[in-house]
């Protein structure tokens, strides 16, 4: 794996924490509560953020919202050019029909991932609305897509990568700007980077995901 140089840290653990708390409040404010919403996170970081947001929403509002995870690999627009052999299972354990879906991702960039995710969600049914929450908006949009909830706007160059690290899976939390070589394609960031044994990472992710196990969904 190519080791990328960290150029700067744009958010530390505390900053991420505050941003997520604010986004949770904004989601509740916009939707006037939590009863009609569900969160769907895009793997591999968005789904962890979605779980994190769900916990905060529960603390604030006392309501457990359903959380799903989505792998958009099969909906990408560049499948003919390159595919990642690593797939993650999509798990949306509730009906999206009539619900307001808050789509959660870590970094909003070209907008192509979100386009793919919108198509994917539509294949599950007809939500009442889809809103977009991202921790970072780094600009360079190639499609007419914008986020409803943004943790932080981070101006960046196309030659850079903006990546979120989470303590649960990477051993440290932070948003970092990394220098990458031009033309290099990097898909979903692998979990566990170089810091944790993969078994340990899997355990952590399992523990996080178990949050959704006992959510009661009223249909």
């Amino acid at each position: 794996m190519v080791r990328l140089e960290t150029k700067s840290v744009v958010m530390d653990a505390q900053a991420i924490d505050r941003a997520l708390t604010r986004i949770s409040h904004e989601i509740l404010e916009t939707n006037k509560g939590a009863h009609s919403i569900a969160l769907i996170g895009i793997v591999t970081r968005g789904d962890l953020l979605a779980l994190n947001l769900a916990k905060r929403i529960e603390q604030i509002e006392g309501v457990r919202v359903p959380v799903g995870s989505l792998d958009i690999s099969f909906y990408r627009d560049d499948i003919a050019l390159h595919i990642s052999p690593e797939l993650h299972t999509t798990n949306i354990p509730f009906s999206v029909d009539g619900r307001t879906i808050v789509l959660v991702d870590d970094v909003l960039y070209t907008g192509r991932t979100i386009r793919a995710a919108l198509d994917a969600i539509m294949d599950y049914g007809r939500p009442a609305a889809i809103q977009l929450a991202v921790l970072i908006d780094r600009g360079h949009r190639e499609l007419p897509i914008r986020a409803d909830f943004v943790g932080k706007n981070v101006p960046s160059a196309r030659t850079e990568q903006v990546r979120l690290f989470l303590a649960e899976v990477d051993g440290r939390s932070g948003v970092e700007i990394l220098q990458s070589s031009p033309g290099e394609h990097i898909g979903a960031a692998p979990l566990g980077a170089q810091n944790l044994e993969s078994d340990e990472t899997a355990d952590q992710v399992q523990k996080l995901r178990s949050y959704t196990d006992d959510v009661e969904v009223d249909e």
């Binding site: 792998d71 690999s73 099969f74 909906y75 499948i79 052999p85 797939l87 993650h88 299972t89 999509t90 798990n91 198509d119 294949d123 599950y124 049914g125």
Partner: peptide
């Protein structure tokens, strides 16, 4: 193993109501 892992993801698709992907 790549084929079998990928197949596992498609198995999930085959359990959906709308069994269709735009992939190809």
């Amino acid at each position: 193993h790549t084929v079998l892992d990928t197949a596992l993801s498609f198995k999930e698709v085959n359990e959906r109501t709308i069994k269709k992907l735009p992939t190809l």
